[in-house]
Simulated assay, not measured.
Amino acid sequence: MDQVNLEAYLRQQKDLIENEMETRLTELPIPDQLKASMLYSLQAGGKRIRPVLLLASFEAYGTAVEKTLSTAIALEMIHTYSLIHDDLPAMDDDDYRRGQLTNHKKFDEATAILAGDGLLTHSFALIANEPLLTDREKVELTGKIAVASGPLGMVAGQILDMQAENEDISVPLEQLEKIHELKTGELLKFAVYAGAYLGGATEEQLTHLTRFAHYLGLIFQVQDDILDITGIEEALGKPVGSDVNNNKSTYPKLLGLEGAIKQKEIYVEKALASLEQAGAIDSQLKALIDYISNRDH
């Protein structure tokens, strides 16, 4: 897929997700302050990589993408909740996210915490109440997304990341990979798994796709770390060098900038090999590897 077609595809999928997500949240009969806070962060933009990955994985094997929308929206709500909580003073203490005030700066800390809680818990209701999913699919997806986002997944990665801050030496590469496999990779794995599962992929294909998603998550994180050094603040929507200032363990800190770039290239090759084995090398997923690897924000 060429760059023009990829950008058109991403824009189309992003619009689909955002319109559906905004409609569903706006219709909820919840307190105005809570709704405003939840919508504020959901409407702040972003790449929507996770739901787009889910849709692309589904399209590699199936049709009738409508059955995936509730799960894709649930995934983006969980991701957004994690960003709201990451930005809090007790966590990364950030004032800006995607070029605008963070949720707790726009509203207050208590509202931001509750908005995050609301997005997280409502995500499970979206999957459980989706009429286009079978009961078996609802159980499978709810269980998988709970593991990916909870203490065995993203939450574990977040606390390991915090514990790795302010260490006198960088953590070993294997430990750094583990942190990011949990913190970033588990939700990306869920995106790929859920889409392919709903599309009818075989168990063997799902195994190869899980490996593909593992390397894709590492690619995503390496590029994040690189952009924290080389990125442009206007494109990133947050200050450059925040990881350095927070003394976080990163790929450039461990391997140097050139070493981080080379490590990313290793992950790209492994992701492509896994995608080939999954029989999905001709899908949109291949183009998304390049997009995630070379993004500027």
Rank of each mutant, 00 (worst) to 15 (best):
Y61V: 05
T26S: 15
I292K: 04
G217E: 00
H208M: 10
N19V: 07
K105D: 11
T121M: 07
K14P: 01
Y61R: 06
D161P: 07
H180V: 01
L198M: 12
Q284S: 11
G46M: 02
T184Y: 08
S37I: 08
P252N: 04
Q163M: 15
E265V: 00
I232K: 13
D225Q: 09
L54V: 02
F58H: 15
G279H: 12
T250A: 00
R24W: 11
L101A: 13
L54Y: 00
L187Q: 01
I179S: 04
K189R: 14
L254F: 08
Q284K: 15
V171G: 02
E258I: 13
R97M: 03
I17A: 03
K183T: 05
E258M: 15
E165D: 04
T68K: 12
T184Q: 06
D93S: 00
L236D: 00
Y267F: 11
I266L: 11
I84A: 01
A115T: 13
I229L: 12
R211C: 13
E22F: 15
G150S: 07
K14A: 08
P151H: 14
N129G: 14
D168E: 14
S149W: 06
G241M: 06
N19E: 10
S293L: 00
G46H: 04
K178M: 13
Y193C: 03
E109C: 04
L227F: 08
G45N: 02
R48E: 06
P51A: 06
Q277K: 15
D117Y: 00
A260W: 05
A280H: 03
L257P: 08
K47N: 02
E174T: 09
R50P: 07
L42K: 10
I49M: 11
F220I: 05
L133T: 00
L209C: 05
